[in-house]
Design a protein around this nucleic acid. Structure first.
Lengths: 209, 209
DNA sequence: CCAATATCTGAATGATCCTTCATATAATCT
DNA sequence: AGATTATATGAAGGATCATTCAGATATTGG
């Protein structure tokens, strides 16, 4: 594999007939399954194809290479997450930021908790790809949505709203991830969640208008 | 490579003569260099050996396989970090927790900032290994050190000290990591650092004795 | 029903690269 | 110095896989 530019990560062809849409879905689901059971190291094109019940060639009709597959998978989930965050922000328009922050935490948490093992697998898979652009775009999109909330309803005094926004986003996102990467029990996890909320609330109150 | 048990991750042999200690150091440094320039995907045994100026066979005298090499590298850094954390905790014995928390943040931050690119590379490399045990041991060691501080000097009321400790550790560690994974400028980074401190402080004050 | 188009197949190719081992050189010890 | 142990060499073996392509099968539109 050539070191830097993995050719292209973009899909090769978009399905037009319904049977190919089924195929692509099957490939995605198979990728998830293999990722869950074998991890990124055990993810082979033939393995995924077999699990999906299609031939390798079919895979290559939609994804130019293996990494494009994992890339697309992550893109899918990040897009969904971004939409959920935007929805939460829209719903929280005009509410006090403490509430908005809590709602954001709930949103992240729910998204990651839905399939915890998959969450961990995806976190790992991202590390082995050229996903900087993807992650950056996601971060920008989320920042935009949250900034609107934090700026609109507020007149912060000391640090400006953008800074607070970056801090909250970073802390929330990072903490949620870290909470997942430790192998914690259910009680500890939910304890962390409410603790994180309390922390954000305390900070906002201390620094707030 | 067999899916699950990567044979052993333990070193094969410990150097006894001084020339072999030099060799092992060279291998470690070469691993770092390759990791920095090619990433985990471009890390090959022959590549590392070449960069280190030794033959592949030599590498295999000290590491049973490629992953053991990366494992050992991470182990080295985590051990150093754990020692630094313990030192910080020892130094902070008896001081108010707000100060202790700030000192902890400084310690983490300094460790990660020393070689930022290496930090990112190691974060990524860990994802592709069976490092659960390693990370768990590290987490336990750090938890132990910080717990002593937070329990000793304090009589918390509502959530118990252990919970607060877990929360702080998770938030600090996760936030530092996330701060690194965004590609931020120097000003934003240091803004985040002080913001994180303020947040921990606000939380501790709000919940504290 | 017949083109035209979309989708699928999977053996064969070829590249990569981890790992071994028989042999060589250097250090240490007695 | 001779024997023993430590360390180094790197070509060759062999396994794994990503990727291609020439040809088969299915769907659609006219």
């Amino acid at each position: 594999m050539p070191p830097q530019p993995p050719k292209a990560l973009k899909p090769r062809k978009t399905p037009s007939q319904s049977r190919s849409r089924v195929t692509v879905d099957a490939i995605f689901e198979a990728t998830i399954q293999v990722l869950l059971s074998q991890g990124m190291a055990g993810l082979t094109t033939t393995g995924v194809a077999e699990r999906a019940g299609v031939s390798v060639g079919t895979m290559y009709q939609y994804f130019p290479n293996k990494q494009a597959l994992v890339y697309a998978l992550n893109e899918r989930f990040l897009t969904t997450l971004a939409e959920q965050v935007e929805a939460t922000c829209a719903r929280m328009q005009g509410r006090p930021f403490e509430e908005a922050a809590e709602a954001l935490i709930d949103t992240y948490w729910a998204a990651k908790t839905e399939r915890p093992e998959l969450t961990r697998a995806l976190y790992r898979s991202v590390a082995e790809l050229e996903t900087d652009a993807l992650l950056h775009a996601f971060a920008a999109r989320v920042d935009k949505a949250t900034t609107e909330i934090f700026c609109q309803t507020s007149d912060f005094r000391s640090p400006d709203a953008g800074e607070v926004n970056l801090l909250l986003t970073t802390v929330i996102y990072g903490s949620v991830r870290n909470a997942f990467e430790r192998g914690l029990g259910q009680e500890e996890i939910s304890g962390l969640k409410s603790g994180l909320k309390a922390m954000c609330r305390a900070y906002l109150v201390a620094v707030g208008k």
